[in-house]
């Protein structure tokens, strides 16, 4: 077992040598690369990475360039998680046979995927990886939309959001279905660790990633990734949106250990009304018309109900 990287404060963290390169083609102000950097810098160990089709993959591997300084593989839309699981199985097998050239090294296996590739298309593959108990981590960059192909709704898109396949207009207020609770679904596989993280809380994020890398078994991480293009806000406001998401409790930060031990890791001192989170984004603009105003109230009620559900679950340890 290799030693865990010590990160006490941001100054110490900033001595990390990045293994993700600039001049990728992600939009200016994209939160994807912030999350990827925080994940990769959380460890000094070797990395075996994959990215499924999505913004991250098409923007960081534009032939003839690669933005990754670690072993990185891309296969299809659905099977980034299984590619990494296969690499992990091979590593284990070679280690057991004593055929590894550097057996003292302890590589970490991480697959990155967007919400489309995790909530919808790759769901069965991820579920398989979690069930088989591979020693890997799956990180979802959850921007609540298929941003790469032009903003189609995914099963992560929340109620009221305007997406290109569920547009808001005269007869509709946009997406009608609420997003799935993926962290709970994955925790129900009784995996050792699943958590929700946000790039603006970097310390919480690094702590969870390091915990996830230290445990033996599959780990699921859901990271909120504000999308400047599809959420329709100014690129400079990415971190403000992440702040609003965590402080309004739309994206509560918590972890679930062994499928039952839920801990809330961040309790905002001043809880921001959900209305502010919605108002900051162009995709919810129509909700502020008179005929759809009741939806904002429903949003607040839903977020409050989810927060009290998490608190009760934390107390009951179930």
């Amino acid at each position: 077992m290799s030693e865990m990287k010590k990160i006490k404060n941001l100054k110490e963290f900033s001595t990390s040598a990045d293994r993700f390169e600039g001049a990728n083609l992600l939009c200016p102000g994209c939160a994807h690369s912030i999350i990827v950097r925080e994940v990769l810098n959380a460890t000094n160990d070797d990395l075996v990475l994959s990215a499924t089709t999505g913004c991250l993959e098409v923007c960081t591997a534009v032939y003839p360039y690669t933005s990754w300084d670690a072993s990185w593989i891309h296969i299809g839309f659905e099977n980034g998680s299984t590619a990494v699981a296969g690499a992990e199985a091979m590593y284990k097998a070679l280690k057991n046979k004593g055929r590894l050239k550097q057996p003292d090294r302890n590589p970490k296996f991480v697959s990155f995927a967007g919400d489309g590739a995790s909530y919808d298309i790759g769901f069965q593959w991820i579920s398989g990886c979690m069930e088989r108990g591979h020693n890997m981590m799956h990180v979802v960059l959850d921007n609540e939309v298929y941003a790469n192909t032009g903003g189609q709704r995914s099963s992560s898109t929340p109620i009221g959001a305007s997406a290109t396949t569920s547009p808001a207009g005269r007869v509709s207020y946009g997406e009608k279905k609420n997003k799935k609770d993926m962290v709970s679904i994955m925790a129900s596989h009784n995996i050792p660790y699943s958590a929700q993280v946000s790039p603006n809380k970097w310390k919480d994020m690094v702590k969870k990633i390091q915990h996830g890398m230290a445990v033996e078994g599959p780990v699921f991480i859901n990271a909120v990734s504000p999308c400047t293009t599809e959420w329709k806000f100014d690129p400079k406001d990415t971190m403000m949106l992440a702040d609003l998401a965590t402080d309004s409790l739309v994206f509560p930060l918590y972890e679930i250990i062994d499928g039952h031990e839920l801990n809330i890791t961040y309790r905002p001192k001043n809880v921001v009304p959900v209305e502010e989170y919605l108002a900051a984004q162009g995709r919810f603009k129509h909700l502020f018309k008179d005929e759809y105003k009741h939806l904002i109230k429903e949003w607040q009620e839903r977020v409050d109900a989810n927060w009290s559900y998490l608190q009760r679950r934390e107390e009951a340890r179930v």
Binding site: K11, E12, F13, S14, T15, G22, A31, R37, M239
Partner: peptide
């Protein structure tokens, strides 16, 4: 404080020795 380093999406903030 290195806030710009951690939140830069394009690895463009150069930090040396904290």
């Amino acid at each position: 404080c290195q806030f710009c380093w951690i939140y830069c999406p394009d690895v463009s903030i150069i930090a040396r020795d904290k």
